[in-house]
């Protein structure tokens, strides 16, 4: 079944998966906008402008960081090739555009993030499916009976671990109590995602290592977990007082 899925969505067709997740995620988020005092139209605009910021920012900043290459062929700026893209710059650009749009619409930060939480959780599922289809974010070699043959070794099916974790997180977010203080939904999602990454990164075969063989993603996930738990606690304290 996994091989069928990988054949069906082999790169570059795998790019359809995050797009599908985006669409499903937005539909799910729309269903719950009322709870957070945000209209469907505002939520849609927030997402669309952020996506626009993601696409334009990712391409323009990539071009700026490879200026000499683009100066020799400026039309490459308009190439449909998705490899001419800086994902980190795209993410920063999309956050900036979303923030500016939110400010202009006078959206409160935490209710807006709560409203977007099902969208983020669905995107995480789309991302793990994209990893599964492309064979990226692959696992470390293992002797486990559930190991999969990938890239010349029997490996932990890290993409499947990631998929299961993101499905569980969406389920927990979707079916949780609705009377919690503002921001708790998003922070719970962020804490669960950080905890899942912290745990599952240990089974990855492509980790970026820092001093002493520590995995960079685990260090970032631990710091994120610390920050989200601290924010969660301060949210509960605010609600109490």
């Amino acid at each position: 079944m996994v091989s069928l899925f990988r054949s069906l969505f082999a790169p570059p067709r795998h790019l359809i998966l995050p797009l599908a997740a985006l669409w499903v995620g937005l539909a799910l988020a729309e269903k719950r906008t009322g709870r957070h005092g945000i209209s469907k139209e505002t939520l849609n605009n927030l997402v669309y402008y952020s996506i626009l910021g993601y696409i334009l920012g990712g391409r323009v900043l990539y071009a700026l960081s490879h200026f000499s290459a683009f100066a020799q062929s400026p039309l490459s700026l308009f190439s449909p090739n998705p490899d001419l893209f800086d994902p980190f710059a795209a993410l920063m650009s999309s956050l900036l555009v979303g923030f500016v749009y939110g400010q202009r619409q006078k959206l409160s930060l935490w209710p807006a993030l709560d409203a977007l939480t099902p969208f983020f959780a669905t995107l995480a599922i789309g991302l793990s499916l994209t990893h599964l289809a492309g064979g990226t974010a692959f696992g470390s070699p293992t002797n486990s009976t559930w190991g999969v043959d990938l890239w010349g070794a029997t490996r932990h099916p890290s993409q499947i671990y990631e998929l299961i974790a993101s499905l569980l997180i969406l389920g927990l977010i979707w079916f949780r109590k609705t009377d919690s203080p503002s921001g708790v939904s998003f922070l719970t999602f962020a804490a669960l995602t950080a905890a899942a990454r912290l745990f599952l990164e240990a089974f990855r075969g492509d980790s970026t290592l820092i001093f002493g063989g520590l995995r960079l993603a685990q260090v970032i996930a631990w710091i994120t977990l610390l920050a989200t738990l601290a924010l969660l606690e301060s949210g509960f304290q605010r609600e109490k007082s």
Binding site: A10, P11, Q72, S73, L75, S76, L77, D83
Partner: peptide, 9 residues
């Protein structure tokens, strides 16, 4: 994977 590759790429 896929193409055509742009010159800048």
């Amino acid at each position: 994977i896929g193409g055509p590759m742009a010159e800048a790429l």
